[in-house]
Amino acid sequence: MDDFYRDYILDHYRNPRNFGHLEHPDVVAEDTNPLCGDRIRMELLVDANGIVADVRFFGKGCAISQASASMLTETVKGRPLADVARLTKEAVLENVGIGISPARLKCAMLGLKVLKTAAVGQLASWPDED
């Protein structure tokens, strides 16, 4: 677990990318991790071609949930919304790297769950349980 907290994770935790709110988002979703109360909100701007033109996330929580959400915003910016709906937990694991313990997997997956909820337009299941 110690080697999980690499510099880039701490950097995303302390300097989250695309953090805040959009003025006129097209889709918005929000959820919490009932295990620990971490909360994440995702706001997307989708252009006429169905591309995620801009994205913001807002949240509170542990380094794992916040860094993972921050990295995801970079993953999805400029990609078709349909792709976002099809993202799997591997996308998150690729971002955050190895070493996450099973007990903390939900923390890492919260951002993706919220993003997929936004993309699909209905509550998405936990990506690690699919």
């Binding site: 677990m1 302390r14 620990c36 109360g37």
Partner: peptide, 22 residues
Amino acid sequence: DIHPHDLASILDGEGVCIRAGH
């Protein structure tokens, strides 16, 4: 600025069990 869940995970690595949350 260490979130208590991160703290609890790191402490677990040292064999120290604490609780984190509400």
